[in-house]
Amino acid sequence: MSIIIKSIVNADREARYLNAGELRAIQEFYENGVSRLNFAVTLTENEKTIVEKASLKFWERCPNTPSNSGNRMYRNSCLRDQSWYIRLITYALVVGDVEPLAEIGTIGVKEMYDSLEIPLPNLVEAIRCLKEVSLDLFTLEDAAEVAPYFDYLIQSLMP
């Protein structure tokens, strides 16, 4: 839930106006909005390259994985999932909150990958590779703004 919705819901629950702290937080959210949108655009425009480079990096680190077995279906599924996680990161950046990652990206995912016999440590390593390649697209300062979304995802998926 974005800071705006949270603030309004909390104020309404207490039948009060937004306080100065809440209003400052909302103002900061808007002031940083252009940066967050630019980060999302960068990831979106580079998604294919990010996934390709991250996959190569992942297969170097984890050569014995179903997605690197020569089975085209496994490989395509791995690439699709990596792209899906980049998309979820862009959603989180736009709203400035990890909620899309939690609601769309992590709830039930462990069970799904387990049922597909995909080792969770491999998935976590794949996300780490996505993070590394993605952050290379940003300045150090901007990467520090983007990294926590990847970190949240990594922590959520750890076995």
Score class of each variant (00 low, 15 high):
33 G>S: 02
81 D>F: 14
11 A>V: 09
122 N>E: 04
29 F>E: 14
41 V>F: 10
105 G>L: 13
24 R>S: 10
118 I>D: 01
94 V>K: 09
15 A>M: 11
51 V>P: 00
158 M>N: 11
48 K>S: 08
8 I>D: 05
50 I>Y: 03
81 D>N: 09
28 E>A: 15
85 Y>I: 00
49 T>D: 01
123 L>M: 13
127 I>C: 01
2 S>P: 02
36 R>I: 00
114 D>A: 14
157 L>A: 10
95 V>P: 05
38 N>H: 09
106 T>S: 15
83 S>L: 10
33 G>N: 09
97 D>N: 14
10 N>D: 14
123 L>V: 15
53 K>I: 04
132 E>I: 12
122 N>F: 01
78 C>K: 09
34 V>I: 07
64 N>Q: 15
61 R>F: 05
11 A>T: 13
46 N>C: 02
136 D>A: 14
86 I>M: 00
62 C>R: 08
84 W>N: 07
57 K>H: 03
140 L>F: 01
154 I>P: 03
67 S>K: 03
156 S>E: 06
27 Q>L: 14
154 I>M: 00
89 I>G: 06
120 L>S: 08
1 M>W: 05
138 F>V: 01
99 E>G: 10
36 R>E: 04
140 L>N: 14
12 D>M: 15
24 R>V: 13
55 S>P: 02
115 S>F: 15
35 S>Q: 12
68 N>F: 04
100 P>M: 05
45 E>V: 10
